[in-house]
């Protein structure tokens, strides 16, 4: 899933650069964003309503399915949830509330889901931010080094490390990190999450290892991209010219090659944001961070249907928006793109 950043946007060099076409492309891309979003919401809504079994009964039986309830309870809840209406009415009701900014109330807490997401979102943002730092710190130097030492033992070693990040399920990395820290170093992160602004030191302690675990999993792609881009750039004429001028190899690489190689890497890195956020689902649960990802898991566990659908749409929305931004940036950066 992380491997195809470029592949999905094939380059077609037959088409020429054209400002009007660019504008048309941007407009079209923006317009298509809306039906896609509607499609996504319909897909989520339908999916969560074809769950086998009676949703009301599922909710009433509790997270572990042990609670007892009467048929009266079930009927009451069905009525409350509007489950007796046809599905398209349910969808339209839900959409109209959504458009009025009302994300509905959780079945568990009875509190507004909107508020819940607003509380959790900044937390996940902080984790994602830290992870991006980790990813940059891990992947760019490693990618550069691997390219410079192409086909050497160091290259293979570094690439293996990057691919290992892709090969380990993130929850497995997370469990190992928690276990090693607590058993080996007698350390675990302070409990009770605090935000970066309120208490930067505690917050850093709480986010450091989750960001490493998340970043490790996501950096594999960027390592490989950095390496590939740099290898290509190193063969360009201006690099050859720079070398011919007698510049030191280090200066050539840093001043000329890396700078040019990184632009597409960073752009494509943007497509990873959506996946980074979905990675928080598991990482936040194990590392005890009360963000959106854990919100989704606890909603899943307590069968909090209204919350689940908001969360999934939220994650899809993040991915859609980041893809949109990347597409637009890419079109802007690389005029060879086929506007279609």
């Amino acid at each position: 899933m992380r491997v195809y950043g470029l592949l999905e946007k094939p380059i077609d060099s037959h088409l020429k650069k054209s400002r009007t076409r660019m504008r048309k492309y941007v407009l079209r891309r923006l317009l298509l964003f809306i039906p896609t979003l509607i499609g996504v919401s319909m897909a989520v809504f339908t999916l969560l309503r074809i769950i086998p079994g009676d949703i009301a009964a599922l909710i009433l039986s509790g997270p572990s399915g042990e609670l007892t309830y009467t048929q009266e309870d079930v009927d009451e809840l069905r009525e409350e949830m509007g489950l007796n209406n046809p599905i398209y009415i349910q969808y339209l009701n839900w959409m109209s509330e959504l458009l009025r900014g009302d994300l509905g109330n959780s079945f568990v807490t009875k509190l507004s889901i909107g508020e819940q997401v607003r509380r959790q979102l900044p937390i996940t943002m902080q984790l994602a931010f830290f992870s991006m730092i980790v990813i940059s710190v891990i992947s760019i130097p490693i990618g550069v080094l691997a390219a410079v030492k192409q086909d050497s033992a160091i290259d293979y070693l570094l690439r293996s490390f990057a691919i290992l990040g892709l090969a380990m399920p993130s929850f497995f990395v997370a469990l190992l990190v928690v276990l090693i820290l607590s058993v080996g170093l007698h350390w675990s992160a302070p409990l009770g999450f605090v935000s970066l602004w309120n208490d930067p030191i505690t917050s850093f302690q709480q986010l450091f290892f989750p960001a490493i675990a998340l970043g490790f999993a996501s950096s594999g792609l960027l390592v490989r991209m950095t390496r590939a881009q740099l290898l290509e750039v190193l063969r360009e004429d201006y690099v050859r010219t720079a070398r011919a001028k007698g510049l030191a190899e280090g200066a050539v690489i840093l001043r000329h090659a890396v700078r040019n190689a990184l632009l597409p890497v960073i752009t494509i890195g943007g497509t990873q944001i959506g996946f980074l956020f979905s990675g928080t689902v598991i990482i936040e649960t194990i590392f005890n961070i009360p963000g959106v990802g854990r919100g989704l898991i606890s909603a899943l566990n307590s069968r909090d249907l209204p919350a689940i659908q908001v969360y999934i749409i939220y994650f899809a929305g993040i991915a859609l928006v980041s893809n949109l931004i990347v597409d637009l940036m890419y079109a802007w950066l690389d005029p060879r793109i086929r506007y279609g």
Binding site: M1, E8, L32, T36, L37, G39, V40, A43, V44, L47, L48, I50, I51, G274, F275, F277, S278, G279, V281, L296, L300, I308, I312, F315, A316, A319, L320, N323
Partner: peptide, 18 residues
């Protein structure tokens, strides 16, 4: 496009729930 919008793990969760 709509299907690709979902991060794969989340889509998988939703599909498996269904």
């Amino acid at each position: 496009d709509a299907l690709s919008a979902f991060p794969s793990l989340l889509l998988a969760i939703a599909l498996m729930a269904a």
